[in-house]
Simulated scan of single mutants.
Amino acid sequence: MNNMKRSIRRIFWLLVLCFFLLLGYMGKLVLMDRDGISANSYNARLRYVDNTIRRGDIIDRDGEV
């Protein structure tokens, strides 16, 4: 039984370590890599920032806006 408790304790600390590593990686992305990520050409948000795209008008059947 003592061996099982030790195994459970090891798994618990492994999960805690993985959680904090993931938290640290996400913090690094937010604090350090945000400029590179936002300027990446694969970022879909860049389409919405571009002001040269003119959106069409919504018209009804009579042709009025």
Rank of each mutant, 00 (worst) to 15 (best):
N2S: 10
N3D: 14
N3M: 11
M4E: 15
M4C: 05
K5R: 13
R6V: 15
R6Y: 09
S7K: 15
I8S: 07
I8T: 12
R9H: 10
R9Y: 09
R9M: 12
R9L: 14
R10N: 12
R10S: 15
I11F: 05
W13T: 04
W13M: 04
L14M: 10
L15I: 08
V16L: 06
V16N: 05
V16Q: 05
V16Y: 04
L17D: 08
L17E: 01
C18N: 09
F19S: 07
F20H: 02
F20R: 00
F20S: 06
L21M: 14
L21A: 13
L22E: 09
L23V: 11
G24M: 02
G24S: 07
Y25W: 08
M26W: 04
G27Q: 02
K28D: 05
K28W: 07
L29K: 04
L29D: 06
V30G: 01
V30F: 00
V30C: 01
V30N: 00
V30W: 00
V30H: 00
V30L: 02
V30Q: 02
L31T: 11
L31K: 05
M32W: 07
D33S: 03
D33M: 02
D35I: 08
D35Q: 12
D35G: 06
D35V: 05
G36M: 03
I37V: 06
I37Q: 01
S38R: 13
S38A: 12
A39S: 11
A39Y: 02
N40S: 08
S41Q: 15
Y42T: 10
N43R: 03
N43Y: 00
A44P: 01
A44E: 11
A44F: 05
R45S: 07
R45Q: 10
R45V: 09
L46K: 14
R47P: 00
R47E: 08
R47Q: 07
Y48F: 12
Y48M: 10
Y48E: 13
V49Y: 05
V49I: 15
D50F: 00
D50L: 03
N51L: 13
T52P: 01
T52S: 11
I53G: 01
I53M: 06
I53D: 04
R54E: 13
G56D: 05
D57V: 07
D57Y: 12
I58L: 13
I58C: 14
I58Y: 05
I59P: 01
I59V: 10
D60V: 02
D60F: 01
D60N: 06
R61K: 09
D62W: 06
D62A: 11
E64N: 15
E64W: 05
E64F: 09
E64Q: 12
V65H: 12
V65A: 15
V65D: 15
V65N: 13
